[in-house]
């Protein structure tokens, strides 16, 4: 099997420099709509109207975006005559609504953190992006993060999907089977807010209605770097979006 070995070596390095430097390669993230100042109040209202999930709210001449609800349909970007501003970043991890303080995992977990993923009704995209963290581009092992096969050894629970009725019990069982301290990350718009599936007789409409969520990673799907950012936030190597400022505010 030596030729695979050589072939692997010949291929060279592909791994991103993130988090030491920001990743600038094209296509690592679909980006996101950001607060946009429009020329007129009507235009802002139009932008809010075009959003099928109500993630955009118009206030005077500007349109604000609640990324938790955005499903990346891009209708506000293409097709709408005055497009929303679009920002190509990926550090999206936030605290859930109403949570002010954030406590990362203890220092011991910085270089050894084990992750279990639960697909609770995911469409496959978020799960696929989580899986991409194992590929040579993102290679999360270099950061001391590993997927583990059993919740018994897991420190972090990544939940994708809006939590379907049939997955509710397995999800709870997984959470209960994890030792303390444990963190729950909701990955993707569905897990954060229910996404397009919302709340229905088979969907709980987000992880927070079933489990206490520690961090939310929005995006439909959240790209690998956004998930990686979330995992770095769990270890305390990065701060959640807006957390610094809230600290400053209190100080």
């Amino acid at each position: 099997m030596s030729f695979w070995f050589w072939r692997g070596l010949r291929k060279g390095m592909h791994t991103t420099r993130y988090p030491k430097a920001s990743e600038t390669a094209a296509g690592v993230t679909p980006g996101r709509p950001v607060t946009t100042q429009f020329a007129s109040v009507q235009q802002a209202a139009l932008a809010a109207q075009v959003c099928p999930v109500g993630a955009i709210t118009a206030q005077d001449g500007s349109a604000h975006v609640d990324l938790d609800f955005c499903i990346h349909c891009q209708r506000c970007r293409f097709g709408n005559s005055p497009p929303m501003d679009w920002q190509s970043d990926y550090e999206w991890t936030t605290l859930p609504h109403g949570l002010r303080r954030y406590e990362p995992l203890p220092r011991a977990y910085r270089r050894s953190m084990h992750i279990i993923v639960v697909d609770a009704g995911d469409c496959g995209a978020c799960l696929h992006e989580v899986k991409q963290l194992n590929n040579p581009f993102y290679n999360m092992h270099r950061l001391g993060m590993f997927f583990t096969a059993t919740p018994r050894t897991a420190d972090v629970l990544l939940v994708v999907g809006p939590v379907t009725e049939n997955m509710r019990v397995p999800l709870l069982k997984t959470y209960e089977a994890m030792p303390n301290p444990k963190k729950v990350l909701a990955v993707g718009a569905c897990a954060v807010s229910g996404g397009i599936f919302g709340q229905s007789f088979v969907s709980a409409g987000g992880v927070s209605s079933v489990l206490p969520v520690d961090l939310e990673i929005p995006g439909d799907p959240a790209p690998p770097l956004a998930i990686l950012h979330g995992l770095l936030v769990v270890t305390g190597r990065k701060a959640p979006v807006g957390y610094q400022s809230s600290l400053e505010r209190s100080a």
Partner: peptide
């Protein structure tokens, strides 16, 4: 020490 049910892949 927290004792928990046997982990069996999430089945009831």
């Amino acid at each position: 020490v927290a004792r928990n049910e046997l982990w069996a892949g999430g089945i009831p």
